[in-house]
């Protein structure tokens, strides 16, 4: 079961996120549970694999807002990087960053 302590151990900035969630731990944990199942992760992966940088940017941008609000730092950091690259429509290999994002998500999902 996902707990605040587990999130903290994983690397989330729990204190910052809890301020936003009115110090309601259950609410925060519930939102994290929803966030890691968000379809934008799959959209990001598919768009990057297909070279659709516009769709990739939409998905990354969306994830960035969510991860930032929940202070899920280990995912937020690579998401911020990929968002800026995609915003500039940079032609590069996105696979390593996508993999890092999905790996952090897998690690977090294991806590569930």
């Amino acid at each position: 079961m996902l707990t605040v302590n587990a999130l903290r151990a994983w690397g989330a900035n729990v204190d910052e996120a809890l301020v936003r969630c009115l110090n309601n731990e259950n609410f925060y944990v519930m939102l994290v549970g929803k966030a890691i199942k968000d379809p934008q992760f799959e959209k990001l992966k598919e768009a990057c694999e297909a070279g659709d940088l516009e769709q990739g940017f939409e998905a990354a941008h969306s994830l960035k807002g969510m991860m930032a609000n929940l202070a899920l730092t280990p995912i937020l950091q690579p998401v911020e990087k990929i968002t800026e690259l995609l915003r500039a429509r940079t032609e590069t290999d996105y696979a390593p960053l996508v993999e890092e994002i999905l790996e952090q998500r897998r690690r977090l999902a294991e806590q569930l």
């Binding site: 969630c21 009115l22 939102l31 929803k34 968000d38």
Partner: peptide
Amino acid sequence: DDFVNREILKAN
């Protein structure tokens, strides 16, 4: 459109 952002804002 993001559930998480919406719910946080709503709660606030």
